[in-house]
Design a protein around this nucleic acid. Structure first.
Lengths: 204, 204
DNA sequence: GTTTGACCTTAAAACCAATTTGGTAAATTG
DNA sequence: CAATTTACCAAATTGGTTTTAAGGTCAAAC
């Protein structure tokens, strides 16, 4: 489970697991969850379908793993931004830019969002929620340090975080589900600017 | 067509048209576009189905009329806000509050938005687009006068309008489609506050 | 000018058989 | 024992057909 524990045999095991996830990713991204079959994935890997069930409980768990890795990519990119030693304003700005760009790559994640209007993909909710919690925490951190350092003037940080979270999540719909990411990029930039002028401390 | 031209006989005609729209509204709001039949609507009005086609070309036109009236309600409320002699900042704030509240009542309008992820209700697009154009114009007016009067500090008004329009439209998804309007009200308030601090001229 | 009711056409629902597919478990391999 | 296969089941999906219902039309009637 933990990569740090991987021995020779387990390294192979992980490697196969990874290959399964990678192949599943391709199919899911191409044909979506429903239209992808476990048999297809197995065949592509020159394995029998049953082998997949040695690594994953079922199709849903495999799909969830694919989504999880997509989200992890975003998280890594965001961690990189957070790690940097920049002032809170620049950090939050970077956070937004990187988030939109990285999330734009998450084909399967968008698929579930789109599908959520038709049917429910509840089984990915844990992943979504976990990421939301992560983001909430990180944004709160940035705002908190920004408030302490006098970069932001905020009365209630938690509410500000709520606002930002809702804005981030809301704007995903036109951006990704309607494929307007490239078209709206300059508008996103302007939006962040306005938002930041609102969050920033007014220069006295 | 124009109510100002209505004579006695035409007044009756308009009255019946209105009754049809009202009844249609009830059914559409209750069962949605697809599951409502023209026959149902006619029966409720103690008329034959054919009568409806004397006033409307078809089901889609009738539905569009229902949507149009919903939107007109919102527009009236907004016109009231615009009419008032308040400073641009307060006016735009009122605009937001009233818009969200009024739009929350438009059951059928939300139905089409929700449905747009499954199938397309293109025939209501003209209504949508017309309203969007109206909003764009009014918001631009407010921003323009706000800039002239020194309440707002804006470099490019058109882009600011774009940002506001996208934000307004984006946030409708969680607000109405996911029924979070009541839950999010204080967050909306805070959002407007932040947004306005961003738009307002920094006090020197 | 309105309304009706019979009528047409097409789209949706209901049905059913055939097939596919997710999932399991015993057997097999190395 | 870890990893994989094969054979198999039950449930879901698909394809095609029939039936039904619903949108829309029109001549006649009010």
């Amino acid at each position: 489970m933990n990569p740090a524990f991987s021995e020779n045999s387990q390294s192979d095991q992980e490697s196969i697991r990874d290959k399964i996830v990678a192949t599943a990713d391709e199919f899911f991204a191409h044909y979506g969850f429903q239209k992808t079959t476990m048999d297809e994935i197995a065949r592509k890997l020159h394995k029998a379908k049953g082998a997949l069930y040695y690594y994953f409980k079922g199709k849903e768990e495999l799909y969830t793993e694919v989504i999880k890795r997509e989200i992890d990519t975003v998280r890594s990119a965001l961690n990189e931004v957070i790690r940097q030693d920049t002032d809170p304003v620049a950090k939050l700005e970077n956070y937004f830019t990187v988030r939109f760009k990285a999330l734009n790559q998450c084909v399967n994640y968008h698929e579930t969002m789109k599908a959520d209007f038709r049917e429910s993909y509840d089984f990915v909710n844990p992943v979504r929620e976990e990421f939301e919690q992560y983001e909430r925490q990180e944004i709160k951190n940035i705002l908190s340090t920004g408030k302490s350092s006098g970069h932001f003037s905020l009365s209630d940080i938690d509410t500000s975080v709520d606002v930002i979270m809702i804005l981030l999540n809301s704007i995903e719909v036109p951006l990704y589900l309607k494929g307007m990411y490239n078209k709206y990029q300059n508008i996103i930039f302007e939006m962040t600017t306005i938002l930041f002028d609102g969050l920033k401390k007014n220069k006295p």
